[in-house]
Amino acid sequence: MIDSFLEAVSNSAIGIYIAEDPMAFPWIEVVHVLSLVTVFGSILLVDLRLMGLASRDYPVNALTRTILPITWVAFIIAAMTGGLLFSSNPYGYWGNTAFKAKMVLLLLAGLNMAIFHLVTQRGGQMDRPGSLPAGARVAGFVSVTIWLAIIACGRWIGFTMSPF
């Protein structure tokens, strides 16, 4: 099943275009990197607050309400551009360990975020300034660690495979 998926992506018009056009891959990669740094930077803002290391006088619920829309917009752009980059060489990416690690880490980041929003944040104590429950501090630490690893894996992809 995965082989037929990779073959379909590899033979798609968009995949062939990105692989063959000398400007397409670099420009898509620029947008991917810009959106990814925005995802990481905005999540870092929230994570540092969760860990109690910065913005302690900004209530977490208010901070997530105002910052996470930026994160989501940037994440959607990063996912779309990431998909386009993947389409230029699906077999190469699928066979790359750093790429697979990045995908697993993205799932773990999503899981950590879901647990925080559905369990920890609903547990209360997020509408006031100051330090937060241990669950929130742990969620912030886990999140920043995973996202650092995601960026590292993204960079390692560039060093362990040819883009085209």
Binding site: V37, G41, S42, I67, R155
Partner: peptide
Amino acid sequence: TIHIVAVAVVITAALV
């Protein structure tokens, strides 16, 4: 990787 993390800090600050 460290360079990109620092870029994230600078660009996010400018964006906000």
